[in-house]
Design a binder for these strands. Structure first.
Lengths: 217, 217
DNA sequence: CTAACGTTTGTCCAATCGGTCAAAAATTTG
DNA sequence: CAAATTTTTGACCGATTGGACAAACGTTAG
């Protein structure tokens, strides 16, 4: 007889066997691949199951509903995704801090493009599943860091601007290389669009955020 | 009896009656709304038909397949979407030209957010339907404008950087306010996230691209 | 009026969807 | 070993999907 609801209690304590750990991980990896390229509604359980190398009922033994997979994925994502911003620290040289924040975000776009696209998909569709997190946890964190940046501006360490839009512009420019990767590569062509494109981007962004475009007097 | 295939010949000349013109326009408007928030696979013909105020078979009388609607939408989009870049002109002050390009792109993000999201959805999913356009028409245009920008750099009118990544950064920062609008508003909150957010963004971006963040000596 | 043509809809269909279930297979436990 | 438990699967279900079709309806030209 089937050993049923002991696995996906969801809210309860996750007492899991070794196999359950491994298989759940396998499913999440496959789901990340599928969800990030097709969106939630555009992805099917069959696709995920096939990518994970198992049958659909077997997948549903580990995750009761399609939404549970997506939810688990999103929860994990947000933690690692905001880590670079959390590291933005009041101690240390402001310009250096910002530069390394940009570098870290660009590295994440390079190393975890699927996670970036998963997030972008969710936001594009109106963030129906993570809206509370955006208005809560995320807003709190950004407001906090905006205050730090404002302190730097008052101290004359960096130019005075809108800290919130500064953070947006860092998000936009770095995540662009993950979310719009196909377009970036198509436009750059085989030569400039190769592996070196992230170093080119890093150099450009560093200069942009440091000096802007005005020619050196 | 039905007056059949005279409407959706697709490749042939579009000899259309007044009603056909109007209804097709109605459908495209509804489809833009639906596709831009749900993606292609996530949208259903029924949704579009309902949004257009007609029955599904009636919609399919004007567009034979779901894909035909999407294709028509994308074709129109690309023309208007790239118009600002086409206007980027060699005559005139380079810094002014770039500034007004950024302003125009930001206005498009404000006035046509659905178009921006439709495009973002397509790229996110690997641009399966417009890849040839990216590697062809788009690349040609960008290469051409990159050459113009390079000329400005050689003439010492703007700082030397990578013109392609400069264009990417303008796309990213401006379209961010359409594609990630939900997140932007959630983070800014009711006060700063109101209608004034685009003016704040315009001010910030102007300063970023002009002077960067380095404090004024 | 009527014939021809353009428009609209109700009905239907095969394929696919998310998810269930019971039974088989594999594994762990004693 | 055998019993208990966990894991896997084939078969199945109702709902939804994109699309086909013929009949009904509306409009216009002769």
């Amino acid at each position: 007889m089937g050993g049923l609801a002991t696995v996906n209690t969801g809210t309860e304590a996750p007492r899991r066997t070794r196999i359950q750990q491994e298989k759940r991980e396998l499913i999440l990896e496959a789901a990340l691949e599928v969800f990030s390229t097709n969106g939630f509604r555009g992805s099917t359980i069959d696709q995920i199951a096939e990518a994970a190398g198992m049958s659909k009922p077997n997948l549903l033994y580990y995750f009761r509903r399609k939404e549970d997979i997506h939810e688990t994925l999103m929860q994990r994502l947000l933690d690692t995704w905001l880590a670079p911003l959390r590291e933005l620290d009041d101690i240390g040289d402001p310009m250096t801090e910002l530069r390394s924040y940009i570098r870290r975000k660009l590295e994440m776009a390079r190393d975890f493009p699927r996670e970036s696209r998963l997030f972008a998909n969710e936001i594009l569709q109106g963030a129906p599943r993570i809206m509370p997190l955006l208005a809560g946890e995320l807003k709190t964190l950004v407001d906090e860091k905006a205050a730090v940046i404002k302190g730097w501006m008052r101290a004359g360490k960096i130019a005075r601007t809108d800290p919130w839009h500064l953070i947006f512009s860092i998000w936009a420019t770095t995540q662009h290389y993950a979310d719009f990767d196909v377009q970036v590569r198509a436009v750059l062509g085989p030569n400039r669009g190769g592996d070196g494109r992230f170093e080119d981007a890093a150099r450009f962004l560093e200069q942009l955020f440091l000096d802007g475009l005005k020619p050196k007097g």
